[in-house]
């Protein structure tokens, strides 16, 4: 039996757009800024419904981060929108000084993250953003896995006081989480119990882990699957409790191995309960142009890679 029947294919950025639109109706302090990518970020509905609370920034991301920091002074809750590449590396110092160090309540919303941006190629496919953001003190880092979870996360971060990095993507991916879910920042979601191995996945790789589970079951491996949607603060207890039961772990993410979720998990386990770990992540490489599914296969972050890594992790327990 399959874990989930994914009925629809939707992009996580549309989940962000839907969540932002809902916030527009429910929270009058929410304002939105976009650096000339309103359509790509699915922010049009908010912009049309609340023109007084939407700021078209033009192609000036550094200014956008500073203006967002300023908007918080007096109680606004700014949501900035641009591609993940331009939301992080391009404006790292602006985020560091004016937002993180200054403790400003800015929600940095980043689309087109990772390889699955596709044809635009490596200039736009940032695979370092989670690392950059998780290193910043005060920053909360979230990478939801599907449309519904992204929508719920968008709504949840408005209620959270402090800077947040919310990462999502461009391609249509299976929608498999509950439509009416409540998103709890920092709380892992155990998708399935298992006893042989813990597979910890974030973002688009969560569905790949779900797909892998079926093949693993046929090979006699009972995998526990955990969705870490909040990279920081990390739900260490959920990870440690699971690994104490299974004795090995696989991490899976659309990100560089250096600085990603896998390293956060490693650090936690090394301090509390060291076990064999295998990493499904991009290994110190830039991406390239291609279709999302082609890129995930070529760079080793697809379902077969999760299966292979899991078999290896289980083998290493012996």
């Amino acid at each position: 039996m399959k874990l989930f029947e994914a009925k629809d294919q939707k992009d996580t950025r549309s989940g962000f757009g839907a969540g932002l639109s809902e916030l527009g109706e429910t929270n009058e302090n929410v304002v939105a800024l976009c650096a000339d990518l309103t359509g790509s970020l699915k922010m049009n509905a908010f912009a049309d419904a609340h023109p007084d609370r939407f700021f078209q920034m033009g192609i000036s991301e550094a200014n956008m981060m500073g203006v967002a920091a300023g908007l918080t002074i007096g109680g606004k809750i700014p949501f900035t929108g641009t591609f993940a590449n331009f939301s992080t590396g391009r404006v790292y110092d602006q985020i560091r000084q004016s937002i993180a160090y200054s403790g400003k309540n800015v929600k940095i919303c980043a689309s087109h993250a990772g390889l699955t941006l596709g044809e635009d190629g490596a200039t736009h496919q940032i695979l370092e953003d989670l690392g950059l953001m998780k290193m910043l003190p005060h920053m909360t880092v979230i990478n939801p896995c599907d449309y519904n979870q992204t929508k719920a996360a968008t709504i949840a971060i408005a209620e959270h006081e402090g800077p947040v990095y919310l990462r999502f993507g461009r391609p249509k991916m299976p929608v498999f989480t509950a439509e009416d879910q409540k998103f709890e920042i920092g709380k892992a979601w155990k998708i399935k119990d298992g006893k042989d191995v813990t597979i910890i996945a974030t973002g688009h790789l969560v569905w790949k882990a779900v797909e892998a589970e079926e093949a693993l079951k046929e090979k006699g491996i009972d995998a526990e699957i955990i969705n870490i949607h909040t990279i920081k603060p990390l739900d260490e207890k959920a990870i440690i409790d699971s690994v104490k039961k299974t004795g090995c772990v696989v991490t899976a993410e659309e990100h560089q191995m250096n600085g990603g979720l896998g390293e956060s998990v490693s650090g936690t386990l090394m301090r509390h309960f060291p076990v064999p770990q295998e990493f499904v992540a991009v290994n110190d490489s830039f991406g390239e142009s291609g279709k999302p599914h082609e890129l995930m296969a070529k760079y080793g972050i697809d379902t077969p890679n999760v299966i292979e890594a899991t078999l290896k992790a289980v083998e290493r327990k012996k």
Partner: peptide
Amino acid sequence: LSVAAGAALT
């Protein structure tokens, strides 16, 4: 100047 512009908008 960016921060001031944001605060002025608020």
